[in-house]
């Protein structure tokens, strides 16, 4: 009788599965949370995987490009980030942490490109002693929009500060999410954000 019961349970599970798939199909993908998409993707739903890709490709590319300031390098880092997303998705157990996980992958790929292509010296990426380079002039004019001025100034922040600042202001990450994505502590994030802001105030003071 146990076999029959097992069989019945299996049949029941199948019907639940079908109901779930049906309910998912009626919800637009754009309204589905990362967590749900990750779960579906882990269970072999490639459609969910490609939706995660569409959701994050521009964010990841922008992050890589603003970190490397080299479009070829940014393209490679972005591609490799999504290769890692597909191949390592099974190792991500908490779908809610997907975004910070994906950016930590992207950050590693940026470092890989730096090491491989030697676009920027690696020391520049590790150096946390300087927030920005005072010697190079900021190439902006009064005619530039405030947003453009900020973008130019942000790119002058040293990588260790720029990544934290971008994850906060552009991606809207919490301190905890930034700490996860950049492999640091919350107090370090707090301090880096503060120093970045002081630096930006200094860089932009004459233009405000």
């Amino acid at each position: 009788m146990e076999g029959v019961a097992t069989f019945a349970v299996l049949m029941h599970l199948n019907s639940i599965n079908a109901q779930l798939t049906e309910s998912v199909n009626t919800t637009p993908l754009s309204e589905i949370s990362d967590e749900e998409l990750v779960l579906q993707f882990r269970n072999g739903n490639l459609h969910s995987g490609s939706f995660l890709y569409s959701r994050y490709k521009n964010g990841i590319y922008s992050f890589c490009l603003r970190m490397l300031q080299d479009s070829e390098g940014a393209k490679d880092a972005t591609q490799d980030t999504f290769v890692k997303m597909v191949t390592n998705i099974q190792s991500l157990h908490n779908g809610r942490a997907f975004k910070s996980w994906l950016f930590s992958v992207a950050r590693n790929e940026v470092l890989m490109v730096v090491r491989r292509n030697k676009i920027v010296p690696m020391e520049q990426f590790d150096d946390e002693t300087v927030v920005f380079d005072h010697s190079t002039p900021l190439k902006i004019t009064m005619q530039n929009e405030m947003k453009e001025k900020i973008h130019t100034a942000m790119l002058r922040l040293k990588p260790a500060y720029r990544e934290v600042y971008m994850l906060r202001e552009i991606e809207g990450f919490s301190y905890e999410e930034i700490a996860v994505a950049t492999g640091t502590t919350i107090s370090a994030v707090k301090s880096k954000l503060f120093k970045s802001r002081v630096a930006l105030n200094e860089m932009l003071a004459q233009y405000q």
Binding site: N58, Y61, S71, I150, E169, I170
Partner: peptide, 11 residues
């Protein structure tokens, strides 16, 4: 202003 910075479209 920084919050309004847009993404750069991926190629």
């Amino acid at each position: 202003s920084a919050k309004t910075l847009e993404y750069i479209t991926a190629p």
